[in-house]
Design a protein around this nucleic acid. Structure first.
Lengths: 199, 199
DNA sequence: TTATTGAGCTTACACTTGTACGCTAATTTA
DNA sequence: TAAATTAGCGTACAAGTGTAAGCTCAATAA
């Protein structure tokens, strides 16, 4: 294995270790450098060969999480194209994502309101991506003017994220209820926006 | 000053000290017992005369914050009664609250998605109060059936909290924009719910 | 082949943390 | 007045933290 390969592999190990530490009771700011190093199987001081700070690692994690989100969107679009209703399919896809990658979603959720301005800004950026894409999609499929489509998209994304947050602390049966509820709420918004725009 | 009075006063000092530490970059879990004691002007070990844990203090803070929220609701209702529109007045009252008691709102916001299950549950309880009251209000003023009123209330509260979160990181001009946007979104929901209920 | 680089290690240090233990001194009770 | 209670303090300790300094040794470059 080349030196560069090895370094990348260790970097990966650090990132994965950090994600694995982010369970229900840990936030980025509560994870220590030494803990991450321990979990990654390296000496504490070796950490510095890869990241300047624990904060630099944190931003990397947020970026990775955002990447996952974008993959999620792509997946959702594919499923929408093959029928089933936009709202239904999107919410279902999102909920599946949360279950499958709960630590990733938890990271975004937690740092969204976390103690680091840099992290909050980074998460907000990722959510904005989401909103922009949904706004475009809404405009092209419903013909809603930008203002309305954007307000609708923002409201929808926020509600879905909020439902996702609750889902993290819920069992499977309650998750189904949550999904059902948020779908109805999204329909409220879609209809209300349509009406307000006078379409 | 009686012994009991003195003790209550110190307890107050601890609570206020804790709130004062909860600025943009601190969460409950990142505040140490020693820090709180230092800020309250007592010895670290004296803390235990008042709270079993730092966690017990945390729950007390969440309760106090919830109390503030309920006062806010009462205030909003008074202002609604004296005219100005429900949505307008409520959002304005809420935004004023956030500015005036940013540390209190920040606490709720942060612990809502924080690392302690107990704190998350406590905050959720406070938010549920909010939703229940808004549901009742909605039913009595619009005649919407419970299911719809409840879904509407939940969506509204979540959006307002979410806007409040953004407001915390914004200047006055942007806060005005945020308020305007969330008001429109609330109207989407109100109209959409009305339509869906077939009223 | 030899010299350089650099990922990872060990050791070390100065801090901060929670909290156990026992004391003081003032209030409350008897 | 005498005894009991207790808020608050000081000391102490084990455990964890970030990170500086300098070493090793294998991969790369010359």
């Amino acid at each position: 294995m080349s030196r560069q390969e090895q370094k990348l592999k260790t970097r990966r190990a650090i990132i994965e270790a950090a994600f694995s530490l982010l369970d229900e009771q840990r936030s980025l700011s509560s994870v220590s450098l030494r803990e991450v190093a321990r979990a990654a199987g390296i000496a504490p001081t070796s950490f510095y060969r890869h990241f300047k700070d624990i904060d630099e690692l944190g931003l990397t994690l947020v970026d990775e999480a955002g990447l996952n989100l974008r993959q999620l969107m792509r997946q959702a679009r594919l499923r929408i194209a093959s029928g089933g209703g936009v709202i239904n399919t999107s919410v279902d896809t999102f909920m599946e994502f949360i279950c499958a990658h709960s630590n990733v979603f938890r990271l975004l959720l937690r740092e969204h309101t976390g103690t680091s301005l840099a992290f909050r800004a980074a998460v907000l950026r990722e959510i904005q991506h989401f909103i922009v894409e949904l706004t475009d999609y809404t405009m092209s499929t419903t013909g809603l003017p930008y203002q309305y489509a954007n307000l609708q998209a923002e409201a929808m994304v926020k509600l879905v994220f909020s439902a996702g947050a609750e889902a993290l602390d819920s069992g499977a049966e309650q998750q189904a209820v949550l999904a059902q509820r948020v779908k109805l709420q999204l329909r409220f918004i879609a209809n209300g926006a349509k009406e307000a725009a006078g379409v």
